[in-house]
Design a protein around this nucleic acid. Structure first.
Lengths: 344, 344
DNA sequence: ATATTATAGGCGAACGTTCGCCCGAACGTT
DNA sequence: AACGTTCGGGCGAACGTTCGCCTATAATAT
């Protein structure tokens, strides 16, 4: 590297003061069209590019948006990361921002890391994910007034901007789908009660059952850890019931658990889709390759990424948000695992 | 935000010049221990954090490492992104660097985007992925001498630092595994000839077959697009052969294609693992949940991420690399799909 | 006691921008 | 002819650091 070409080089080349070059670069009006062209010419000739760090220092912004996510254990999959990141990166770029992915700190150190990023001027805002009910980060950021948008909800008493998948709507649609196929005993595999995301999804199931006038047997809702094994164990338990009492359809709150369910069913020699319907959530890429292919709810990840960044940038620019709470419904992708009608 | 607390605030509080504070913050020796403590105290009291942008401007570095990746179509999975990113982000952070993910530009605009990032001073180096034989980006970066490390190889005539998975070793191990189980007719599903990664992997297969003294029938190597469907079609073709001529084992260069193979086999009513062995590559999380679970080659993604960043940072700091070309072998994860022995 | 060296810490400058203010010229108005 | 207005463009300053150099004092050696 010989010597970085700066605004001053352009200025001498174009025979103006360097501040005038700045005006041209930033599209300010106070320059005659002749000199403007002369300056652009010089910029082009010299291959000048504004130095972002200097600009950022001057304007007091980093044009960076912080994001960290929890890595999933390697026996699981993160179905959304690729698309979500791409979406955010692209949306940010369009507005002159970049994403700063930082290592997800251990729970107790969360806030400290966010503090650090704020006070070192590294980021202008945050995208939060993996939010939980009383998320410390949200509490902290609300307290300091630093711009952020969450991907996921939290304590309903708090007023903060978020985008989220409408799990309630998703499960309502999935349940209605099964009901319309004639299923009456529809079971649900959910997460522990602490899970907020789980709560919303269960609610959609309950709503759909209720408005169809179906009573829900509490035994039809199983709660446990997010794993294929748990899905398998629960399904086995249900399959032990006499045929006229056991569920004819099982919804799992994730594809991972749904896969466990499918494996349990097939090990009993039963046919998924014909004898027992299975529905998952996430629509992981693999869902379509399972045998039978898995009916699942696909999250509008791209749109969520676009929204979350658009909102965050508005927040940073002090534009008021017309929508502080955005819920986007997932789409039911119907495949063979949910069958064509209830048995019997 | 009232007022950012700067080095000067600390200085007045500690009754020294602000440059001395800088010395303390950067751990320089020329300060007595009393004043040093006084300054640290002031830093702590005021909650001072150095302003990164200002520091970067002064030292003429951005402490950012550029990275972009090609998003896979949504019917496929990116098995490595999550871990690879986390690994790189974490490794970078340890050395005071951050990752800058930027949108993967369309092919024709690749170089221009890299140029821009360099000349606007946004990054100090690049990690390249999805490299191809005559990668324009590599050519350009070699030409300008800008620091980068590739994840993947390219034109062997070029001398540039890279890390990569040793696909040759991986396929050698996989093939030897099948040979040791008594398989003689081992078929391979590969990518088109242009694929460099594919070429290395095929080579491993050929080496293993050769050193076992097995002739390789050219018909046992199929080449086509990376999809489950292609795997399925090819497998069907092989299954049409008389039982004493068809392959008893099939290796696919990716799990996605292996899944197609498994489905084709099962649709013929044959049993994967007992009648025909199947081996994949990638060890996607889903592999263990398939029925039967898929034997596959797992890439050492975490280590690759650590290495690539370590090398890049050395390059930036002008430390000579002891190893400019790092190949890490994948690990064969043996599961039921490769069976316990060749049939017959 | 003087000369030499080491040490602590101060000071000006610079990194590459943008911002706000100012001034001079040109122009139109009364 | 004097005035106000508009427009083009110059200028100083600042953003928060780090760097290199300088100086005064203290410590050591002769």
């Amino acid at each position: 590297m010989t010597h970085r070409v700066t605004i001053k080089d352009v200025a001498t080349q174009a025979k103006v003061s360097y501040q005038t070059v700045s005006k041209v670069v930033n599209g300010q009006a106070q320059v005659s069209s002749e000199t403007r062209e002369r300056i652009w010419q010089a910029i082009h000739d010299l291959g000048y590019r504004p130095h972002i760090t200097a600009r950022n220092l001057r304007v007091g912004a980093s044009h960076m948006l912080g994001y960290s996510w929890r890595s999933v254990p390697s026996d699981q999959f993160n179905p959304v990361l690729d698309k979500f990141l791409q979406s955010m990166v692209e949306a940010a770029e369009k507005s002159g921002y970049h994403l700063l992915p930082f290592p997800c700190p251990p729970d107790h150190a969360q806030v400290e890391v966010y503090r650090e990023l704020i006070f070192s001027g590294r980021v202008d805002g945050f995208v939060l994910s993996s939010t939980n009910l009383n998320d410390e980060r949200i509490a902290y950021l609300l307290d300091t007034g630093f711009p952020f948008v969450a991907f996921g909800r939290a304590n309903p008493e708090w007023d903060f901007p978020y985008v989220d998948v409408d799990g309630t709507a998703g499960l309502r649609v999935a349940t209605e789908h099964l009901l319309s196929l004639g299923h009456r005993r529809i079971a649900l595999i959910a997460w522990p009660g602490e899970s907020l995301t789980g709560k919303f999804r269960v609610q959609g199931y309950l709503e759909a059952m209720q408005s169809a006038g179906r009573l829900v047997d509490p035994d039809w809702i199983a709660r446990g850890e997010h794993s294929a094994l748990f899905g398998e164990i629960v399904a086995q338990r249900w399959l032990d019931l006499p045929a006229d009492q056991r569920p004819t359809a099982i919804i799992a709150l994730s594809d991972l658990m749904a896969i466990g369910v499918m494996n349990a069913i097939q090990e009993r020699g039963l046919e998924v889709g014909r004898e027992i319907a299975v529905v998952g959530f996430d629509d992981v890429p693999m869902a379509q390759y399972l045998r039978p292919p898995l009916t699942s709810l696909r999250q509008p990840i791209w749109e969520l990424g676009q929204q979350v960044i658009a909102m965050l940038i508005k927040l940073i620019r002090n534009v008021t948000l017309e929508e502080r709470r955005v819920l986007l419904p997932p789409r039911l992708v119907t495949r063979a695992s949910s069958g064509t009608g209830a048995p019997g």
